[in-house]
Amino acid sequence: MPLFGKSQKSPTDVVKALKEAVNSLEKGDKKAEKAQEDVSKNLVLIKNMLYGTSDTEPQTDIIVAQLAQELYNSNLLLLLIQNLNRIDFEGKKDVAQVFNNILRRQIGTRSPTVEYICTKPEILFTLMTGYEHQEIALNCGTMLRECARYEALAKIMLYSDDFYNFFRYVEVSTFDIASDAFSTFKELLTRHKILCADFLETNYEKVFDHYQSLLNSENYVTRRQSLKLLGELLLDRHNFTVMTRYISNPDNLKLMMNMLKERSRNIQFEAFHVFKVFVANPNKPKPILDILLRNQERLVDFLMKFHTDRAEDEQFNDEKAYLIRQIQELRPAGGH
């Protein structure tokens, strides 16, 4: 756009103009329509500075650095996110694009925006509550997953009370929002292995207490996705301590045995991958062993007939044969 090319606004001007526009949008006064227009216009200007357009390159590093600094100093990122629901449809997406680009900024090995957000965790908490509002949920989701890539930010989110709201968000009735929330949830629980393992260990009871509700959810997608994720979490060697604890609890075993018999074949199959960990455990606690022994014959029978049509899945058949053998060879503990 050569028309605007000549009189380009400086980052300071654009940030100032955008902030004023968002402020007046927030107040919702008579000038709201004009404010809406100004917000959109300035967001596009900032976006074009960062990304360029089809015929212009992005701005130089110096301009981008100046822009980032202005964004930090003015506290505009938080203001934009707090007012996201008031910004128009395309503007919401522009906010997310600007945010995601600024977040990835690097100076050597430092990520200045990540450092900035660590001092303003409110940004993260506001984004997380975004899942409560249909019209901004997906925009907040893209920003959250971008944040979750950074360990420092993932840590703040995991250890906040707001994290437990995810157990509600992944089950909301709108499929796309629930799915989006689940991808963020999964990212937080799996991306940074050591952080996640520490988190699950220290918060074991609270997390798995909540997790139980997902496994019992009436929503098929929630139930199946959470069961699959559970399997992945338990089989990740970083989570060894968590796994040991999980497979020592007879209630968990009962749940999995019941899920083996679910109506949906796919739930049965995912449950199998969690159930196998209980059986494969060389040091089964007595309550676990008792349940398995009590159902020894039934389990063998059941597994013999279990998903026999998966002939081509070699790994599954090997594992099934192994489980059958293990269960057949089970003897009461203590040698009496």
């Binding site: 009962k254 049965q268 349940i291 009590r294 039934r298």
Partner: peptide, 14 residues
Amino acid sequence: EMDMPSCDWDFPIS
């Protein structure tokens, strides 16, 4: 979906 053999588990009463 209901062609699975049905069977009941026997859980100890806790």
